[in-house]
Design a protein around this nucleic acid. Sequence first.
RNA 1: GCCCCCGUCGUCUAGCGGCCUAGGACGUCGCCCUCUCACGGCGGUAACGCCGGUUCAAAUCCGGUCGGGGGUACCA
Length: 492
Amino acid sequence: MSTPVRVRFCPSPTGSPHVGLVRTALFNWAFARHHGGQIVFRMEDTDRERSTQESYDAILELWRWLGLDWDEGIEVGGPHGPYLQSERGDIYRDVLSHLSASSYTYDCFCRNDEVEARRKASGSKAQGYDGFCRDLSAEQRAAFEAEGRQPIVRFRMPEGSITWNDAVRGEITFETENVPDYALSRANGDPLYTLVNPVDDAMMEITHVLRGEDLLSSTPRQLALFEALVELGIATSVPVYGHLPYVMGQGNKKLSKRDPEAHALAYREQGFIPEGLLNYLALLGWAISGDRDVFSMAEMVEAFDIDDVNPNPARFDLKKADAINTSQMRLLPLDEITHRVLPFLKADGVVADPVSDADAQMLELAMPLVGERINKLTEASTMLGFLFVDEADFVRHEELDGPGKDVVKAAYDALAGIDTWSTAAIEEALRVALVERLGLKPRVAFGPVRIAVTGRRVSPPLFESMELLGRDRSMTRLHDAMSEASGAAGSD
RNA sequence: GCCCCCGUCGUCUAGCGGCCUAGGACGUCGCCCUCUCACGGCGGUAACGCCGGUUCAAAUCCGGUCGGGGGUACCA
């Protein structure tokens, strides 16, 4: 048996969580679960300026909604804590001192403008730090300190080349001459991502680092640091790195926080179900097979592996996301849909919170009519609202024209005479009166009636709706509609 | 500039040397079903960036080229 897999979620709590972040988490999750491994959740909040509690909360909320669970870390604890980087300062300082004692790092006193000036003077076209402070003499150092300068700590990149076998891209090599010495800490002593990310991966015994392609070019320096950590006994081994493709927006730019479709939590608000979002996101860079794209997370876990991931960037396509969500909705049993739709109905004021017995009863009767008709949870409110509203608050969202009013009148008259108020009886009466007697096409016949009774052009099936609404309320609405219509049509 | 990544229908992808006159899905177009909507059914549209090479055989391997993207921070 090989080493058990350990992966991590390590978001920075800055801003609203991005769908790309979720995709990365999903692949890590599926990978770990597929291999029976473990997932560590830590928060990378070393950027005090940008980290916020709101973002932190939003991320956890999102993960829970999606069902991306973890085994160790934030809120569940574990043997490698704390899992909040802002609480690991002592650890980083300690690592830094070990690194420094073994000359893996050096203090750098340079200011940016000085580096810039030197580059200009030398005519070099290279970017990045020039290594000026690599081998400072005691005198030079003393002089800088006398000026009151505070040094930052830089990692001393080794000579030669660095190669790794990327889990999604295969072998990648960088010459270290193209990788400048880089900063591990700020002048004020605060550790930077470049330090804390590999250090935590080492100490938390992460075996596979699956992350966004945007971090690919920082991998050689992390690998170099890792070698140092191994030498120092801080890390036991170097993890496998795999760089997942970008999630792109419109055009050729990566999906930015400014794009509305980038915000993962917005999908919940729009009525997506987790199964739908996750399923769609899984398709961005991975496929379960050549002829299928709707699947459960259990199926994904069963089938997923990292070397099947496609390295090309994927464009986020909202239309397809919608379609996948619809397919997942169709897979839910009716009572589950009802259960999930309820919070939306409450939020929209369609039903009271808590739900009254009468509303609960109506809902149970009405859901079969809309369960297969809605593609998002939010659609239930507009579709069902007419059944729950008080007559005094009922509004028709569509106008009825003169002919429409006549149809409603005919419908009213036809329904006034029926004995039993049932779907079949209502349909029979209306068909005879409107289609047969008046010779109307069905859509012309039932359209005005639908508007009169439900207030909308689009509704659940009409006859069933009327049965549920009941005779009195249906007749009242028909009556109101034809009266109002005649009044409104009078001037035409 | 330098370094790195990527390159199959409009989009997401299947394909890992012959099963490919390239398959599926979304989109789109047409038709059917139909009391609206949604669903569903049928059919059409549309791609291996380009040039060389390897091979009996290349979308699949290699090289180049072009194109796109990313990095080049005391951000992550």
